[in-house]
Amino acid sequence: MGCLRACGEATRIRLLALLVLGELTVKDLTTILGQSQPRISRHLKLLCEAGVIKRYPEGAWVYYRLNESGPAELARRIVAQSRDDDPTLTADHERLAGLRRAKAEEAAAFFAARANNWDKERSLHVPEIAVEEAMRGIVGYKAFDTLLDLGTGTGRLLELFNDQYARGIGIDTSQNMLSVARANLDKAGLQKAQVRQGDIYALPIRPDTADLTVVHQVLHYLEEPFRAISEAARTLRPGGRLLLVDFAPHELEFLREKHAHRRLGFSQEQVERWFADAGLDLVSTNDLAPGAGEKDKLTVTLWLAQDRRVVTDLPVADPTKELA
């Protein structure tokens, strides 16, 4: 009954219809609904108290999203029944799409303006050579068929793992970045690697393609990190691995304000939950913390996960036949 009371109000149904589509901040929701911050915050508080949604503070911001179980299932059914041919909800979704486009364009503009010196900017955090050594170490040195690098940037990872893969594919949204990557690959003579323009939320890659998919320092720019992880998991072959490299939680707000970061790092619990929901098992983690006296630098964390499907040469049993 508490869930029904919490969901049974026009504004709260509008909020739920948006949160079904992903995580949003109070600022996002006030922009879309055209209502005041105190009013929106009150509705969100009631939905949180009913267990329908959860709040996740990140620095000065708070993200809201639907709970993963319990009352949220009822909320999803309520939204599904309310969504069809509702002009208010349709308009809200259109404004959400416009907001996402604006944020994506802002991030793309940031990358484009810095395509030529992005590797230098990365070195302002944990030294890149230490990150690359850790990546090689956590992946191991065995050969494999296909590497997929999401958010390839300058194409550096296609060079880093070139002695292990038979085919490398880099994906990026920025044409400027792709131009830099192509030039770097040509310079290195890596004909077995290629780069493509693509959306990390809708990759131009068939399922069951990659033995290793890497997402290196990309997730903190995204509005919907879990959606990107799910899409990355889709690319894996049975038993394939996903390597995620990003920042541990931090409070450097200037990275959000001046460098287009959407997320101030990711916790172990959060990443492990996302992996599990995407059908992956976390198999290894490595934290690269800054040295003493480097308080302005960030900890880089490496998470290695594996597709749960088992690769086997044994014949599959026919469930229609009775056991002897």
Rank of each mutant, 00 (worst) to 15 (best):
V214G: 01
A6S: 13
V316G: 00
D28I: 04
A50C: 09
A210F: 05
Q197G: 11
G51H: 10
V52E: 05
S174A: 10
V218S: 01
P238A: 09
G239D: 09
A109G: 15
E58Y: 05
P204E: 07
L178G: 04
A289Y: 03
T152W: 02
N162C: 09
L314R: 15
R39P: 01
N286W: 11
T146H: 10
T88H: 09
A134F: 05
D172A: 08
D172P: 09
R256E: 05
L89V: 11
R273F: 01
G279K: 06
D163R: 15
G151N: 10
T213E: 05
R77N: 11
L212V: 13
F226W: 14
G189N: 09
V26H: 01
I40L: 04
G240K: 09
E272Q: 15
A143I: 06
H261Q: 14
S36D: 11
I32L: 02
T30A: 06
P57C: 09
G70L: 09
V195I: 15
L304M: 11
E105H: 08
K142G: 14
E105V: 13
D92A: 10
K103S: 07
Y165N: 00
T11L: 13
A104C: 04
V52F: 09
A10M: 11
L18F: 07
E105Q: 14
S179P: 01
V195R: 05
L47D: 04
A228E: 08
G151L: 03
E251Y: 10
R14G: 10
A50R: 09
L19E: 02
I78P: 00
I32M: 03
E106C: 02
